[in-house]
Design a protein around this nucleic acid. Structure first.
Lengths: 240, 240
DNA sequence: GGGGAGAGATGCCGC
DNA sequence: GCGGCATTTCTCCCC
């Protein structure tokens, strides 16, 4: 396949390369994987990242960032920069091949993320409670990465924000911050608040067990699945 | 651009489509994003997944799984199946276009994952300790998803496996299982063991604070970065 | 379908 | 470089 010679030149020229090919793929490094023969899309980017896509699914099936890529016969070999990983693509047929110089100076701007939610709550503290007064945001202190720290009726309040449904790990995160804060600050009473659009039933129970508070809040302007209204605590105590 | 008419036909035919194009991309749904004009790779798969790649980086910049995709003039519009998300690509120029019927009946096989590590430890319990006797693996009981449950000198042992370096959340996971197990089983003494190739310093301190044990172990046959030998506990107590 | 947890997670930011 | 943490996380698996 003389097109593989062109591939060699394009690799040296750091071009953006796209191939539709029948191939098999094997990987060894942080784990091992093998993918038998089939039709795939192979992408080699300007920065020598290599990505393999199957005909379905949003995610790649194999990839390597910033690889050293070489061609040997009909085999493409990619090695990671630290030498501990290896991706091998055996090309059986090339259906389509194109290479280009691609120019893109833009980078994506994202909004509606957790940081934005934090800012919103910081600006609208009454979402937490009528008496809540925020003190600091993203407090990267030795107590941990507290999303929002504030006070309420003379007690410290630690707020943990989640833009999506909260689960067990999120409750534990809050608990860790509260415990550390208590210990290092030497205070007895610290109020823990989890604020999220929804929370899983087990996580809610866990949160209540720890004596923390849940505030339901969906960041405005985000189209998100509406969580079901949460059962009252009594239903947990009586039911099950 | 008459090629956009071909795109319409290919979409109806559920072909695999690859385009190199200058375009801008906006997304709205679980969050919002905007990406100004630049050269991009646009992939539309057999299952109507749509993916946008910039010229560098292993990850896509925008995507949508299983979308409803339509073309209006030079605009590609993808809507999520639940109607809550929208991806809009404004095409300014098409450099390259190809479409194909792609056939791939293979699926990837992966080894060297955590399950394999669990199996290995279960078969070689002396890795944990000379007296450790495993009882069950992946115990999805009401005590939680315990990786390995066993006994040692008449005490229950809960083992949490990590194939990569353990951090704070992993220690908390172990702690949660131990606490639940104690409470629901009504036993006082339960031994907690974290087994991983390495552990972060803060996580190690946290683990020691809780009174648990760390076992350094790298699954065999995996090329993984060698973690530095961990400092002795005394260094933590004396230092800082 | 919900929930928990792993992933070759990746990527970002702060120290 | 390490560490913690969010991610339009995605994916699998079990209940």
């Amino acid at each position: 396949m003389e097109i593989l010679e062109k591939l060699g030149r394009d690799l040296r020229d750091k071009k953006f390369i796209v191939m539709l090919a029948r191939c098999s793929v094997s990987y060894e490094g942080r784990a091992r994987s093998f993918l038998g023969t089939g039709d795939r899309l192979i992408i080699i980017k300007n920065d020598s990242s290599i990505i393999v896509h199957q005909p379905v699914g949003a995610m790649h099936v194999n990839y390597m960032k910033n690889a050293y890529i070489s061609v040997n016969g009909s085999t493409i070999i990619a090695r990671s920069s630290d030498g501990r990983e290896r991706l091998i693509i055996e090309i059986e047929d090339i259906y389509d091949y194109s290479s280009r110089r691609m120019i893109d100076n833009e980078s994506i701007t994202l909004s509606g993320d957790e940081r934005e939610m934090q800012e919103y709550i910081y600006e609208h503290p009454d979402i937490i409670s009528r008496d809540f007064k925020p003190l600091s945001r993203e407090a990267i202190t030795r107590y941990g990465y507290i999303d929002i720290l504030g006070v309420e009726q003379g007690s410290y309040v630690i707020v943990e924000c989640k833009r999506i449904k909260a689960g067990m790990p999120e409750v534990e995160q809050l608990h860790r911050y509260v415990e550390r804060f208590k210990k290092e600050k030497g205070v007895e009473r610290v109020i823990g608040v989890m604020i999220a659009p929804s929370i899983s039933d087990p996580a809610y129970r866990y949160l209540m067990d720890k004596g923390y508070r849940f505030v339901r809040f969906s960041p405005p302007g985000i189209l998100r699945k509406q969580g079901k209204r949460h059962k009252d605590l009594n239903q947990f105590l009586n039911g099950n």
